[in-house]
Design a protein around this nucleic acid. Structure first.
Lengths: 113, 113
DNA sequence: CGATCCTATCGTTGTTTCACGATGAAAGAA
DNA sequence: TTCTTTCATCGTGAAACAACGATAGGATCG
């Protein structure tokens, strides 16, 4: 049983300010895309799981959700394509973690409404 | 040509604090539903239109968007069912305005991620 | 009254989503 | 090597979404 800490796969504190605009068509589409990714209870739950354990939970996510493995994998793909999470291969398993920059971006855009 | 001010149809400043929890299954579903409603560029644009003009814009929304009237009406319905906006009939037209409480709720939930 | 304007709804079409089981690929363990 | 574990992907079916034109209803104007 291997222990995994956040440092192993989530090496981007990345605190540089985001200079992109908060309004305009581009921001609209960006917000819509991010919000769409969050627009499913299972994906919200996944985000919370990844946020709470600052470490990355790999397939443990499947155990936490009442969904099939393939379904969870699909939701992870949606979140990844939206840029909200990142997955790194670690041997046989994959370590998912939140992409703080994208999450911050989402918060800023929503706050700008 | 009638002038419409915010006071005519948006009479709820409503500044009471929101006591609902920010986490848990219920909050997850609430956030997912709200985010889903925001998860389309046209709806984001509508929200911004309604926010900027503090007054309510009725069918003027249709003129602002490159979409058919029926499509815009459909998007308005989605936003309304999510609780994010409200529509009040004013003679032949309908006045839409943001539901500040729901928008605040969305911001709180997203910020809680 | 009839004509007009504004909006919602209906019906349709094509696309996307959601969920699942089954299959595959890659890495370790035996 | 072969077996097992872990995850992604494929294929499928049901449901939901997005967009439109057409239609209908309610309110106002003439």
């Amino acid at each position: 049983m291997k222990e995994r800490s956040a440092a192993e796969c989530c090496p981007t504190p990345n605190t540089e300010p985001d200079l992109r605009p908060v309004e305009g068509q581009e921001a609209d589409e960006e917000l819509a895309a991010l919000a769409k990714a969050v627009g499913h209870p299972a994906r919200v739950q996944i985000l919370r799981l990844l946020a709470h354990r600052t470490s990355c939970v790999c397939g443990d996510i499947v155990d936490e959700l009442p969904l099939a493995q393939s379904t969870v994998s699909q939701h992870l793909k949606v979140l990844k394509e939206a840029g909200l999470i990142r997955g790194e291969v670690d041997g046989p398993r994959v370590c998912y973690c939140i992409e703080p920059r994208a999450l911050r971006r989402l918060k800023v855009l929503v706050a700008g409404l």
